[in-house]
Amino acid sequence: MIPLTSILYAASGNDERKSGGLRQALRLCRDSNTPLTVVQICPDVPEKHAPLQNRFMDFLEDELHDSLASVRKELDIPEQTVRARIVVRQQAGTPPAISLIRMVIDEEYGLLVKDAEAVEGGRGFKGTDMTLLRKCPCPVWLARNTAHAGPPVRLAVAIDPESREPGERELSLNLLRTAGSLARGFEGELSVVSCWEYEFERFLRYKSWVNISEEELRMNAEDIRKDLLGEIERLVHESEIAVDRRIHHMRGRPEDLIPEFTEQHKTDLLIMGTLARTGIPGFLIGNTAENILEKTSCSLLALKPEGFVSPVRPE
Rank of each mutant, 00 (worst) to 15 (best):
P137H: 02
G180M: 08
L275K: 05
G20R: 04
D244F: 09
S208W: 01
R72W: 03
Q80H: 15
S172T: 03
P46H: 05
L229Q: 14
L228I: 14
D160R: 06
D115Y: 10
R55D: 09
I7Q: 02
D115C: 07
D227Q: 15
C195E: 04
L75H: 10
Q24G: 09
N145K: 14
K226N: 13
F186T: 07
G93T: 07
T5A: 12
S299V: 03
D15L: 03
P78T: 04
I7E: 01
E294H: 14
I105D: 04
R55H: 13
L175F: 06
R251C: 08
L303G: 05
C136A: 13
W196S: 07
R55A: 14
A118R: 10
W141K: 08
E165S: 06
I241M: 03
A69E: 15
P281F: 03
D129V: 07
V113I: 10
E120Q: 12
D58N: 12
S181A: 15
N14P: 00
S299Y: 02
G13K: 07
P51T: 10
C29P: 05
V88D: 07
H49L: 14
V309A: 01
I101G: 05
D256Q: 14
L269P: 12
E197Y: 05
H65Y: 13
T37S: 08
A143P: 06
P259W: 02
T131M: 11
E233N: 09
A179F: 09
Q90F: 00
L75M: 12
E187Q: 14
A242M: 02
R277S: 09
T178L: 00
D160Q: 05
E315W: 15
P311Y: 06
K114N: 03
F308H: 04
E255V: 01
H49Q: 05
M219G: 00
A143Y: 11
K135C: 14
P314G: 03
G180S: 11
Y109C: 12
C136G: 10
E263G: 06
D115V: 12
V119K: 04
A10V: 08
L190Q: 11
H265F: 10
G121S: 08
I2K: 01
E294P: 01
F283Y: 15
L36T: 04
V45W: 00
T37Y: 03
H265N: 11
N211T: 09
E120D: 08
N211P: 02
V153T: 11
G110M: 14
A179V: 11
T274I: 15
S310Y: 13
Q40F: 13
L175A: 09
I212S: 07
S213D: 00
T34Y: 07
R144I: 10
D76L: 09
A69Q: 15
D223I: 11
L257D: 13
D31E: 12
E306K: 15
D160N: 14
N145T: 09
A179P: 06
L64P: 13
E222N: 07
S194M: 04
I271E: 00
L182D: 02
I212R: 10
E74D: 15
I212V: 15
E216N: 06
R251Y: 09
A179H: 10
K135A: 14
Q264Y: 07
T274W: 03
D115K: 09
C298T: 02
G286H: 01
